[in-house]
Design a binder for these strands. Structure first.
Lengths: 201, 201
DNA sequence: AACCTAAGTCAATGCGTGTTGACATAATCA
DNA sequence: TGATTATGTCAACACGCATTGACTTAGGTT
């Protein structure tokens, strides 16, 4: 046990002084906590501890909880990724991802859980309108392209969010035939949204 | 100011003593608050005040906040409604509802917002697994029927939730061509899920 | 009428949490 | 080296909130 305590005794090495690094550490920890817990349940002390930092530094570097949240939210949406998606395989790939457990794609999962939590908390929802428009809906709209891209982007985004929630509450991966059917149906939906027109002209 | 205080002086009429009625009043107020605010942001004092009741009565009748929440959640899902949906018109109707503002369908909106909030709060999510299965997924599964009803029910439920979130953050009704396209696409998705097979056999 | 029990009220306690300012110390520069 | 500043630490404070128990009173019972 003495080894364990020795390992846990990180404070023996009292943190190099490096403003940028600590700021980044806080931001990074914050992203995870906010994504997992949502604004209201996330606790500054825990975030700080996770970053190996004193709580007071949150104030120094960000001003407060809300400001930290906004910063973390923006940092979580550097709005890349989507451009790189391959149109030929996207629908299938995303459906597979959504059929699996939330734990396999931690990175992307976190980013969108963050968005979801932010959107569904009454405290933070007001902060989101612009950001959602700019960094979520708009990239999708551009990526989809074609006629009525805005409406299709809405449906696309909504579906995505929905499947994310479903996977969240499901918690575990789907298996066997259910999994195959799920993937087929979901990828059919996304594929349908990528085609410019399957409704009346 | 004396007028205002006079107006505010509702306590002049000190609440008839009726256990069932007050219990119901609390539960009713709780449903609204939890749906609108989620578990964490909802405040017992406000719920009590809304019901015209002292906070302590929440303890007397329900035991505590969490118990009240569970009760309210169950009460919000009497699992009716869905059976009554008309298969011929459902997809179109639901799409229209989802295109409009959240305020037009307060009743149903509230019930599902409740579910959503509950599912996305880490505090309450654990309480939901069974309930979601029993009162949400299962009715959909039965209503859909046919082969692979379970997988289709998942996709169905997920889509529904997603569109609900989308409408929530959108806040206002869609208009014009965007609205038409949105409705077409959404109803196409639901209609597709109602058909037994459009994938490989 | 006296009494008893269920229903409702009130004030206080304790905890979690964001925020704040005073203090300590490493890093940098004159 | 000594002084100055940026960086990090610590200990409270203030606030909101759920919870709790002691007290009050209406409504029925004997």
């Amino acid at each position: 046990m003495s080894d364990a305590t020795a390992l846990a005794r990180a404070p023996a090495e009292p943190r190099k002084r490096d403003a940028e690094a600590t700021r980044a550490a806080i931001l990074d920890a914050a992203k995870g906590h906010f994504a997992r817990l949502g604004y209201d349940c996330a606790v500054l002390r825990d975030i700080a501890q996770d970053a190996g930092v004193d709580v007071a530094l949150v104030k120094r570097y960000f001003g407060g909880k809300e400001a930290l949240f906004v910063e973390a939210l923006k940092a979580s949406f550097v709005a890349d990724g989507m451009r790189a998606w391959d149109r030929a395989t996207f629908a299938q790939e995303i459906a597979i991802t959504l059929a699996d457990s939330p734990h396999v794609d931690e990175e992307r999962t976190h980013r969108f859980q963050f968005l979801l939590r932010a959107a569904t908390s009454p405290t933070t929802a007001p902060l989101l309108n612009v950001l959602i428009q700019d960094r979520f809906l708009e990239p999708i709209r551009v990526w989809l392209g074609g006629a009525d891209a805005d409406a299709r982007a809405r449906v696309f985004a909504a579906s995505y969010i929905g499947f994310l929630v479903e996977r969240l509450v499901r918690g575990e991966a789907l298996e066997g035939r259910e999994r195959r059917v799920f993937i087929d149906r979901v990828s059919a939906i996304f594929a349908g949204l990528m085609t410019v027109s399957d409704g009346p002209p």
